[in-house]
Design a protein around this nucleic acid. Structure first.
Lengths: 251, 251
DNA sequence: AAGTGGTCTAGACCACTAC
DNA sequence: TAGTGGTCTAGACCACTTA
């Protein structure tokens, strides 16, 4: 386990960034399990042959990214529920009383088609480009509360099948990553209020014309490349969407 | 202008936090105008009698908060449009094409009343406590698109009048700060879709029953104390609410 | 060439936690 | 009491910008 930074590479990459990568690698290796403390700062500084200050700068960033948690006097810990946090980053519907739940997905539709004008715009596709369009129903506490219409370029997801989607084990984004090497690293959402049309009324078990939340999301990978465009319809009779939150930063 | 930190107060507050406050005070004094460079780090470190490292930690936080911008080799600058950024932190409605605009406010109602059950809950008030409740209409490009019903505890805003609100120069939150010493430092929002009732239909110039976005916000000051509870109704026919955004952080 | 911020060191002492 | 992270120092050298 000689985890020394490789030759203090003169690559021009700051040392603390190299340290950060090394720590991430160790985490990925499962060297320090979730919820457990990582070695103290002094040890890590020695191990990577850097000063405490440099080591701390690397750890600082990992703490900012919610990958590690520091407790003064106790140690630095691998964040629990890193998976959970990641999950609820992208699923922002909770019950009116604030209770969160894991949604049960159900594939309601799947087809290969030419991209619509709006999909072309959001996904930066050429005219006539093909996309896969599928519909995902989400239930909370046994009740269907959200229906997503999801559009991805065929160019990035060639060979995608209805069965793969139906039988995928985890979240859609982890599926993208494992099966197609597509990493979602950012999203942008806008929200409107619209009326339920016939098909969504049926899917959500509400009357036609019921006000629904209409969440429109573009997901991006590296270099700002859009990889997914989705429209979510949410029945907010008993659930709500968590909007912008501003932490009380101590100014 | 002896801006020395007052006696290196043994108050237990970290030095770099004191330095940060001092820099903020200098900014508030207009000592360094917007868009201009502030003195180099060495000078500031001397002026505040701290080491470069400590000074940098203070500046780091101000950069993270978008109050300052660093340019390697050029200097550290007072962020332009800090006011703008601050403004659009709390006003998140844009046209469907993404164009932002400054809303024109109009006071549509004002009264002193006992807090409703929901207001009591959100504002952590005792039964029978009084609140000021006022209604603020917001227009973009000459069109009324949003109506806010705002509720603040009388205990924090004693003496608030309709005229003060109507004639206030800046945003509501800067008004809170200047006239009542109430600093809003954080917010939490949840979003639903609801139908327009009679009065909101009239205010927004839509038919009764039109789907409206229903944004519910609690604003907090220090120590997580709630100071304002508001419900915004937005006509999203031509405008939309900017939801959660995730920056592509470089992990 | 001079001046700026960016990175890095090798310590020190303090506050907090666990034993 | 021992060990942890939190803060702080007084420098050093590097990369970048401007003139």
């Amino acid at each position: 386990m000689s985890a020394r930074i490789s030759a203090l590479s003169p690559s021009g990459v700051p040392l603390y960034q190299q340290v950060k990568r090394a720590v991430l690698a160790a985490l990925a290796n499962g060297e320090w399990p979730q919820g457990e403390a990582i070695p103290p700062e002094k040890n890590l500084a020695e191990r990577f042959s850097v000063s405490i200050g440099t080591l701390r700068k690397a750890i600082d960033e990992l703490v900012l990214e919610n990958i590690l948690v520091r407790h003064q006097g106790r140690g630095t810990f691998v964040a629990l529920h890193a998976h959970n946090q990641y999950f609820f980053r992208y699923f922002r519907v909770v019950r009116h009383d604030g209770v969160k739940g894991y949604p049960t997905p159900e594939l309601l539709g799947f087809r290969r088609t030419r991209a619509s004008g709006e999909a072309r715009e959001k996904l930066a596709l050429a005219q006539g480009a093909y996309v896969f369009e599928f519909v995902n129903g989400l239930s909370l506490h046994g009740e269907r509360v959200q229906v997503d219409t999801i559009c991805v370029p065929e160019a990035l997801f060639s060979g995608l099948t209805r069965e793969q989607l139906r039988d995928r084990p985890g979240t859609i984004y982890s599926f993208y990553q494992e099966y197609f090497g597509v990493n979602v690293i950012g999203t942008a959402e806008s929200v409107r209020a619209t009326s339920a049309d016939d098909i969504h009324a049926e899917w959500l078990g509400v009357e036609k014309g019921t006000p629904l939340l209409n969440v429109r999301r573009v997901a991006y990978t590296y270099n700002g490349r859009p990889v997914e465009w989705r429209v979510s319809r949410v029945n907010t009779e008993r659930y709500e969407y968590i909007g912008q939150e501003h932490e009380p930063g101590q100014t």
